[in-house]
Amino acid sequence: MRIWTAIRMTIVLTVLTGIVYPLAIAAAAHALFPWQAEGSLVTSGGTVVGSALIGQNFSAPRYFSGRPSAAGDKGYDAANSGGSNLGPTNKSLITAVAARVHEVRESNPGTVSVPVDLVTASGSGLDPEISIAAADLQIPRVAKARGLDEDTVRKLVRANTERRSLGLFGEPGVNVLMLNLALDRLRSGDRPAGS
């Protein structure tokens, strides 16, 4: 008798909270915020180039590069998110960071101290942002690679900088994908849709 009640209640509540509720939310989400509900996808020339929220791999000097990523084997695997989970006293961490510092200094001559976010892996491996300091550091390199003057690039960086929410919460950051898309657009004159 009691077991029956337990089974019946399990089924009833599964239908309510496991089927009806998520379907209703999905429907409402599409009605109210269709772009966000579909994953904030950014298209360029009709093809999906990524999501405004999800970081991507950039290694060419003419693109601002994002943070090191531990998602998937090659990094920025948006179907396999995750961090490095290296502990603070783990030799591998210190070695990896030292190597990245070296790399940043190599590709950005004149760099003395490297902003911490640029040489540490993010939690998700998909962090779309870098700090303002990390973007500023890359301006000379990107400008040089693209033959632009640094002020133009700096302006784009500022335009793609997210301030703190409500001026209080979180930290400011530069969305690398959107910044790089804007850089490309400068050249091609394309207008990426969706943003």
Partner: peptide, 8 residues
């Protein structure tokens, strides 16, 4: 310590 943390 930004290892494992998000910029935002």
């Amino acid at each position: 310590n930004m290892e494992g943390k998000e910029v935002r």
